[in-house]
Design a binder for these strands. Structure first.
Length: 565
DNA sequence: ATCGTGGGCGCG
DNA sequence: AAAGCGCGCCCACGAT
């Protein structure tokens, strides 16, 4: 074996499950060339990782999802990783370099993992030489990353890998959840809890009123077709039973029906059975899926983590002696757009806490509400309605920003690929999409085929238009998360432990993440320092992405016992 | 019984 | 009020 890395060189350790109950740790150089290796038994793996962490290495791992939950519960942390599975997905599809990573099914998760694996679950694999497989893949990935001269793909893979660690740590720590508060909200809203299988009292009352007003005492309100027919019978000729459709009609049944539907949603999505299934020891522990959305946003699995209704936010409550730091970004996506496009006029409008107010000041539109719908319409591709009518005004005032999203839309309509700021690329349109397009250009195409192709092209254009903005916002958020995590490690240990936070019982930690929002659970005495960490991390994220371009990314941040607004 | 699909609605 | 993007989950319903 060659000599160990010199003092100034970053240590890189590939950690591979090389056999039953056995791991191999290989020191490699930047290009992935092997220096030396050692085998580590599972029983001492966590201890070994803790020791090696003193060198601040970058761990090369197949996947944080596989290896990290077990390490966390055994008391080990990884500070930095290169996550081969997450990076594979980025590098395989990127259009930022001429030769992306050759796709390999070995490095693609076969199906979404519904549950996090148990402690060091052995994942069945047919690899003859798992060490060589990992090192080969790492070398291939380094090559693609190195081909992007500006370093953006490297930054993206590092940020994505950090996200993989954060996702597992969020689950290990859990979101502090006060069951008594949740139950009080349920009782207040839904009425008294049903004894066995029935509906809570307020829903029973509202349901009875609705059935009476519809003249059908047996009507099952959860059946959309039957409800629609009953509405038609009393003269409400709605096309659907959706909230916005029903609101158009004047009839005594509408108000109690909408109220019933609201309560019904709360009961089925976050009622008593949700509480029993998802909250244990005052913690809600959803599974976060890093990179689960094509744009790079996270998805989640189980418990509807990304859809917790605002009405239940008071149930998010810090432990005794602890507090929450709740922060979100105001209008992240249009700010990213202004910076990507180097649109000075839009960046000027974005100065300060309210971008929409700045848009009004620029004279493009006359009210804040108009500004909001114009900006959203620009990013989503609105063509009709008031939002679509306002978008052209923005083209005059912000030609660079609008040019960027309009270009992205046009490329998508033509079947092309668009990329985020750091180089995550949009998927190719499906074979079916392509065949619809080619049929429409054939000599014997009829008007219906042409219209269909046009519609589908516009649909895909709206997707690619939004992809560049949503995806770049996701990149900003990933760096923000990684930088917050890094800074929290520097804070002192808690005076009062929070045992249900597991490995984070004595440390300020991230507890929730939702696209452009974080919740930290921190010891009271650390609250101000943690808040500073969140602000500093945001500034660093902006600078990493956009250098000296002057774009404000202001946070709405508060220190509070609950997450209620 | 079990599965896939679509309506509906929560979140950003 | 604005209807344009991205998700996950519950329920009913029809197909198997």
């Amino acid at each position: 074996m060659t000599s160990p890395p010199g003092p100034r060189e970053e240590r890189r350790i590939a950690l591979v499950e090389s056999g039953p109950g056995r791991f191999t740790a290989i020191d490699v150089d930047e290009a992935g060339r092997e220096r030396q290796w050692v085998t580590v038994e599972r029983s001492v793996l966590a201890e070994w990782v803790r020791d090696a962490e003193r060198d601040n290495p970058r761990w090369i791992i197949r996947s944080a999802r596989e290896i990290y939950p077990g390490l966390l519960s055994a008391g080990a942390r990884m500070t930095r990783t290169h996550d081969l599975m997450l990076s594979h997905a980025i590098l395989r599809d990127t259009a930022a370099v001429p030769h992306p990573l050759p796709p390999s099914s070995d490095w693609t998760s076969r199906e979404p993992i519904a549950e996090a694996p148990a402690l060091f679950d052995v994942v069945e694999r047919a690899a003859a030489d798992p060490v060589a497989e990992v090192l080969d893949q790492y070398r291939a990935q380094r090559q693609v990353i190195g081909a992007a001269a500006d370093g953006r793909l490297g930054l993206l893979c590092a940020a994505e890998s950090a996200g993989g660690l954060v996702a597992e740590e969020l689950r290990a720590a859990g979101l502090p959840w006060d069951v008594a508060t949740h139950e009080a909200i349920l009782t207040e809203t839904l009425g008294t809890r049903p004894i066995a299988g029935g509906l809570p009292s307020r829903m029973v009352e509202l349901g009875d009123r609705v059935r009476e007003l519809l003249g059908d005492p047996q009507l099952h309100l959860d059946s959309q077709p039957r409800l629609l027919r009953a509405l038609h019978r009393v003269g409400v000729h709605a096309e659907s039973t959706g909230r916005w459709e029903l609101a158009k009609y004047e009839h005594p049944v509408i108000e109690p029906l909408l109220a019933y539907k609201k309560l019904s949603r709360l009961l089925s999505a976050n009622g008593w059975s949700w509480l029993a299934e998802w909250v244990h020891e005052n913690r809600f522990r959803p599974v976060y899926i890093t990179g689960g959305v094509v744009t790079g946003r996270w998805a989640s699995s189980g418990g509807g983590a990304l859809q917790v209704p605002r009405s239940l936010r008071p149930a998010v409550r810090a432990d005794a002696g602890w507090t929450l730091v709740v922060a979100d970004v105001a209008q992240l996506e249009p700010r990213m757009l202004a910076a990507m496009a180097r649109d000075e006029a839009m960046a000027t409008a974005a100065r300060g806490a309210d971008l929409y107010a700045g848009v009004v000041e620029s004279g493009a539109v006359s009210t804040r509400e108009e500004a909001k719908y114009a900006v959203l319409g620009a990013m989503y591709g609105a063509t009709t309605g008031d939002s679509g009518r306002l978008v052209p005004r923005l083209r005059k005032v912000y030609p660079r920003a609008m040019g960027l999203v309009d270009d992205a839309a046009r490329i998508g309509e033509d079947g092309g690929i668009v990329s985020t700021w750091l180089g995550r690329s949009s998927p190719r349109p499906s074979d079916e999409w392509n065949s619809v397009q080619s049929q429409a250009t054939a000599a014997d195409a009829d008007a219906a085929e042409v219209a269909l192709a046009r519609r589908r092209a516009r649909d895909w254009g709206r997707f690619t238009r939004n992809f560049v903005v949503q995806g770049t916002a996701a990149e900003w958020s990933l760096i923000w998360l990684a930088e917050i995590r890094h800074r929290l490690r520097q804070l002192p240990q808690a005076l009062t432990p929070a045992p249900a936070s597991g490995p984070f019982a004595r440390e300020a930690h991230l507890a929730f993440f939702l696209h452009d929002e974080v919740i930290l659970h921190v010891p009271e005495e650390c609250a101000d320092a943690a808040a500073d960490a969140v602000r500093d991390a945001a500034a660093v994220a902006t600078r990493r992405l956009f250098g000296s371009f002057p774009i404000d990314v202001p946070l709405d941040l508060r220190i509070a016992l609950t997450a209620a607004k």
